[in-house]
């Protein structure tokens, strides 16, 4: 058999399956988004862009849009910041390879936990009456803090869990990347009178710019899929303080209203927004990194 044909036939089943799974659901969502399908009534009709029009007047939708954007920024920036600071700290302060590997192993553990498990653990830790964190808060005189029940804190409290999982994971990746860098430019910087933080700010981290950008993009995509974490920890509450777009779509389509078409329109819109924003960001980064 010719190589091309061989490649085609061996790849075809997997691609077919992927296409079927992705395309059918997208096509389904598209179809429903221009109907007025609701679980309350058995029949439905074509309504054009009515659902989309209504979305832009829906304050809860606009709130969800804002929360989603905030969530992206906090988790991506937070994970990277934690990873950069911790990896540099470990790079400078742990000398023995064994200690470093043990720390790396410990840092890998959180991301290996299923999201739902992590969410339950932290919900317990945050608990006002039973939680370890509140116990510590009271010891240091902060009093009881309503981490998940306070509208101004809840989003950050949930984001902290996400950063705990991914920031530590990225710390391990960055630490390993720092170890692969050639030693000479760092030594040259030492001879150039650079302090430790200057060496990292001006030499090592800029040398790792490309992989750090990749990590940011991976995290941005990953953060879009935090439904399980938020759902278990706050369910979108208090009020709509942590209600991201996917949570709102779920509430509309399945949980509360059963308004399948409205929720479908929302997911289609989310898909479009994501594609547009990521394309723009990707282009911007490519230009900047060149």
């Amino acid at each position: 058999m010719q190589p091309r044909r061989f490649i085609f036939w061996t790849l075809a089943p997997a691609f077919g399956l992927l296409a079927a799974l992705a395309l059918i659901s997208i096509a389904g969502a598209l179809y429903f988004s221009v109907m007025d399908r609701s679980l309350r009534y058995p029949d439905y009709d074509f309504v054009g862009l009515y659902n989309f029009e209504r979305l832009f007047g829906d304050r809860r939708f606009l709130n969800a849009l804002k929360i989603s954007a905030l969530w992206e920024i906090i988790t991506v920036a937070g994970s990277l910041l934690v990873a950069v600071l911790l990896s540099v700290f470990l790079f400078e302060n742990t000398r023995s390879a064994t200690a470093r590997n043990l720390i790396c192993l410990a840092f890998l553990a959180p991301v290996l936990l299923p999201r739902v498990a992590a969410a339950f653990i932290w919900r317990f830790l945050y608990s006002p009456t039973l939680g370890l964190i509140n116990y510590v808060c009271e010891l240091v005189g902060l009093g009881q803090v309503e981490f998940l029940a306070s509208p101004s804190l809840a989003l950050f409290s949930v984001a902290a869990v996400d950063i705990w999982q991914w920031g530590l994971f990225f710390t391990v990746i960055l630490l390993k990347l720092l170890e692969t860098l050639p030693k000479e430019p760092i030594e040259a910087a030492q001879l150039d009178n650079a302090r430790t933080w200057e060496i990292h700010a001006y030499v090592t981290l800029p040398m790792l710019r490309a992989p750090i950008i990749s990590l940011a993009l991976v995290k941005a995509v990953e953060s879009l899929r935090s439904f399980d974490l938020i759902f278990v920890m706050t369910g979108g509450g208090p009020g709509t303080a942590t209600e991201t777009l996917d949570l709102y779509a779920y509430q509309m389509g399945i949980n509360l209203g059963g308004r399948v078409s409205y929720a479908s329109a929302m997911s289609i819109l989310l898909l479009l927004i994501t594609i547009v924003i990521f394309t723009l960001v990707w282009r911007g980064i490519r230009k900047w990194a060149a």
Binding site: P182, E184, P185, E187, A188, A189, Q190, L191, D192, N193, A194, Y202, V203, P206, M207, R209
Partner: peptide
């Protein structure tokens, strides 16, 4: 520490800062 000794070194691998222009490389110290 190396920076306080008043020495300058040229490495076999050149050890330039790869992301900086020639000007910035020379001016870094």
């Amino acid at each position: 520490p190396p920076g306080a000794r008043g020495v300058a070194m040229v490495f076999q691998s050149y050890a330039l800062y790869p992301h900086m222009s020639v000007y910035d490389n020379i001016a870094f110290g």
